[in-house]
């Protein structure tokens, strides 16, 4: 039985981890009712993407552009978190709750 795939860490492994993280993120976003938890899910998505970029960059043609994008993503994630939290605060002020399933104002 060949267990090389366990020892020889390659691009597939990274991508697999990334897919798992991304899927977890999606699941969190769809399943969680708390807005802050959803925000966390979004962070997971960003991180999965980030991991992809880095992995492709590492196993790619040697160019370091992927690394750079990863840095950008981290920055954007931070900014996004700030903005999202601010929105959540506003939402809380308005509705006195942050359970997104109970807020259906967009329907109107």
């Amino acid at each position: 039985m060949n267990f090389n795939w366990l020892t020889d860490i390659g691009l597939t492994h990274y991508l697999t981890v990334s897919v798992v993280i991304f899927s977890l993120g999606i699941a969190v976003i769809l399943a969680k009712r708390n807005a802050i938890a959803i925000l966390m899910g979004i962070e997971l998505l960003l991180n999965a993407a980030c991991l992809n970029f880095v992995a492709f960059s590492h196993f790619g043609n040697g160019a370091q552009s992927g690394q750079v994008v990863a840095v950008f993503i981290i920055v954007i994630a931070a900014a996004e978190a700030a903005v999202a939290l601010a929105i959540i605060v506003c939402v809380y002020r308005m509705f006195n709750l942050i359970a997104v399933d109970q807020i259906a104002k967009m329907k109107e």
Binding site: I38, D101, A104, M106, K107
Partner: peptide, 14 residues
């Protein structure tokens, strides 16, 4: 489809 709930929209787009 138009539930007003963000998560539904996200699921749909996905």
């Amino acid at each position: 489809i138009q539930t007003g709930r963000v998560q539904d929209y996200i699921a749909l787009s996905l």
